Simulated assay, not measured.
Amino acid sequence: MPASPACPSFLLVHGAWHRPSCWSPLQDVLAADGLRSHTVALPSSGPQGTPAAGVYDDAEAISARLREFEGPVIVVGHSYGGVPVTEAAAGHRHVAHLVYLTAYMPAEGESLGSLHGRDASRPVDLNGVQPPVFEDPRAALYGDVPADRAEWALGRLVEQSRRSFQEPVTRAAWRTVPSTYVICEGDQALRPALQTKMSANATRVERLGTGHSPFLAAPAELAALLGRIAADATDG
């Protein structure tokens, strides 16, 4: 499974309420393009230890996966996935690049909640889980996704631990690892204004005209962008 020294592999890190299967359409296109990709299951999402798991558990799952690689790897974090990627990817010698795909990109001491303006001094219940917080998950997450694929994705949504939204990162991998922030301009879940603000932390910024889930709405376009990022990382 590890990447060869010549071409980076991708490690795809899903967001809140999702599981690794959400990446399947993108992985099919990447494979057709000769690019290797792998996934990781975050323990804060779904039935396996969900209520107690948080950012640090997710970061350890990512770190464990990264330790399996023997060649360069590009870590792609989507939405919430950007938080544990930020915590986990520092210090792994094979990590060549980070991609924040309409993702949270916190600095040290920041959490998903604080990036949305939550007052850190107010007590918060870290226990338990919650379903997607959107009034209309179809519109927020998959508004531009073809109907059959959107229904497939909706049927695979899981609960997410509250803890994962509140735990702050203790380190920021993007300070030492080159990064690309991909702003999704039609996103209804993570608004482009907040994406743009966080993207100031990135080495470079790219844009897609999609909603929140380009791996389902436009997998070929996203795969092409990731291929260019991989080529640039190899040349660099």
Rank of each mutant, 00 (worst) to 15 (best):
Q160K: 00
Y56Q: 10
A16S: 15
A88E: 03
E108Q: 14
G91Y: 01
S79P: 08
V83M: 07
M105A: 15
I62S: 07
A53K: 11
L30C: 10
A231Q: 14
V182H: 08
V83S: 08
G34C: 12
A224G: 14
V124R: 13
F10I: 07
L66D: 05
L157N: 07
L30Y: 09
S213D: 12
F69S: 04
I229C: 10
T176P: 02
R175L: 10
L154D: 00
G117R: 10
L30E: 08
V133G: 13
S121T: 14
N201K: 14
G109F: 07
R65I: 02
Y80V: 11
F69W: 01
G81K: 12
Q195D: 11
P214W: 04
H38M: 13
L30D: 08
P178I: 01
D28T: 14
Q130M: 15
A172P: 00
R191V: 07
W17P: 05
R163L: 11
S179E: 03
E60G: 04
A59L: 01
T180E: 07
A64N: 13
L30H: 09
R163M: 08
G34H: 12
S9E: 13
S9T: 10
H212A: 06
A3N: 10
F165D: 08
P25A: 06
V40D: 08
C184K: 04
G91K: 03
G117S: 10
G209Q: 12
G71V: 03
V129T: 15
R156S: 05
T203G: 15
E221T: 08
G128F: 05
H94V: 01
A90E: 10
W174N: 00
P123W: 08
Q188R: 15
A230V: 05
P132D: 02
P8Y: 04
A150E: 06
V13R: 09
A61L: 06
N201R: 15
G227M: 12
S45P: 04
R171E: 05
L157A: 05
L26A: 11
G91N: 03
H14G: 06
P123L: 06
E60H: 12
V158K: 12
P137A: 02
L194G: 02
V133P: 06
Y142D: 06
S179C: 03
P5Q: 02
T210P: 06
Q160A: 02
V40P: 10
G91S: 06
P214D: 11
S161V: 09
G117L: 08
G77S: 07
P131Y: 02
A61M: 10
P214K: 07
S44F: 06
A202E: 05
A153F: 01
H116R: 14
D58K: 04
S111N: 09
D33A: 15
V85I: 07
G117A: 13
S4L: 08
V40Q: 09
A6N: 12
P2L: 07
R118N: 06
H18E: 11
E159P: 00
E87S: 00
H212S: 05
T180I: 05
H78I: 12
H212Q: 08
S164D: 04
A220T: 14
G227K: 10
G71A: 05
A200F: 10
P72R: 01
V124S: 09
R156H: 13
A88K: 01
A153L: 02
C7L: 13
